[in-house]
Design a protein around this nucleic acid. Structure first.
Lengths: 221, 221
DNA sequence: CTTTCTCATCTTGTATACAAGAGCGTTGAC
DNA sequence: GTCAACGCTCTTGTATACAAGATGAGAAAG
């Protein structure tokens, strides 16, 4: 899929940011990255420019690129928007889903169930992603799909933390069940509300997490 | 603001796409563009990559860049999402607006009034943009602001066509009035619904436009 | 002792040179 | 006559070279 070097580099650097290898606020020196990946500055620059356009790095003219640090507030805002978009996708899915969407959604849901009952958070993480993708797809709006997928991707690192929270995975799954019911029953507004709060909860959880983290930090100091 | 060459080029090319100088589907030859702007291929490539990341051009590996042609369907989808995001911004604005937001919103609204009564579609176009920006701002969500502004920008060319439609400008303004009332009264859900249909109407208008255009084309052939 | 101005160095931004894949026409075989 | 394979050319992708602005240190003045 990724035919060219700069495309691969883009994914590589993006991954580094998402996984935290490249910390928020960190300076991204072109020469350093070029050496590290064994390429010239050109493809590095092109990768950074792409990431800049997506919003993952900030490119200050003639002053280099740094990993964007959204900060708790902006991350919460991102969850807020995500909640709204997911709700919209759910509502559209309820109205527009076809037979094959139904099948995919149920299949994804069942996969989630298996992971949830076996307590495998990593597996659940991926199955959950597929589940939500199935909803985006069922909305039959290519643009909405793209928007949701992009934002979902950006929120990845923060979402991942949350599955570790006590019992979150089982609660998440039971929410899924009701969401599936609403969509398949064609209850658009119910699906919207359920999905909205399903995501919003994650934003709240995130806030709690931040709060507890900063409290711990204060303790540590 | 645009300090570097490739930044200026990006705006230049983007403008060309938005205004239609560069038609959808058109091939963007790097050498050709470089000659045209009197620069080397490097900044051209960087500009194209940025536009690719935004979704304005499609970059097919080793096969060059072309201006994306969203097609009527996807444009309609974009309006759908825009409607939802604007509605969200309106709802948040109703709940969160501060004194200065109130002032800005009213100022922008009055400007629209002047343009609308004088029948100046071009002026109204810009004032309308400022009006909607004021709403995004009043939502006090930086991320939502960015998302709305970006999508608004992408829908620019299609929106522009619509003001020419008979009476649209005055109708638009009267809708604005009710929107302002709802926001300032703190009626979140009313603001959401009003804004949602305010934008959705544009999508519908666009569909009508497309329908009539393709009918005309058929006639022409 | 502090502050500001200047100069050196380092990094980014742009141009050019080189490599390699894609498209296309021609030629040869069936 | 048609189809396929080969090779040429053209475009993109990457590397390197060069230009120019930003940063920081040091010197000089207050």
């Amino acid at each position: 899929m990724a035919a060219t070097t700069f495309h691969k580099l883009r994914d590589e650097i993006e991954n580094g940011i998402v996984t935290g290898t490249l910390a928020p606020g960190e300076r991204l020196d072109e020469v350093q990255l070029a050496n590290r990946f064994g390429v010239s500055r050109t493809p590095i620059r092109e990768a950074l420019i792409q990431l800049g356009a997506i919003g993952l790095v900030e490119i200050r003219p003639r002053r280099g690129a740094v990993v964007v640090d959204p900060g708790p507030n902006r991350i919460y805002e991102m969850f807020e928007v995500m909640a709204e978009l997911e709700g919209m996708a759910g509502a559209l899915a309820a109205r527009r889903h076809a037979e094959e969407d139904r099948a995919k959604l149920l299949a994804a849901h069942e996969k989630c169930e298996r992971s949830a009952t076996s307590g495998d958070t990593d597996a659940y993480y991926y199955d959950n992603e597929r589940f939500h993708n199935a909803i985006y797809e069922a909305s039959h709006s290519g643009f909405l799909y793209d928007q949701c997928a992009a934002l979902h991707r950006r929120l990845r690192p923060y979402r991942r933390l949350q599955l570790r929270v006590r019992n979150r995975m089982k609660v998440s799954f039971s929410e899924h069940t009701r969401i599936v019911e609403a969509i398949l029953a064609g209850e658009a507004e119910a699906a919207r509300d359920l999905l909205r709060s399903h995501i919003a909860v994650q934003g709240d959880r995130f806030s709690d997490l931040i709060a507890s983290l900063s409290r711990d930090e204060r303790k540590a100091v």
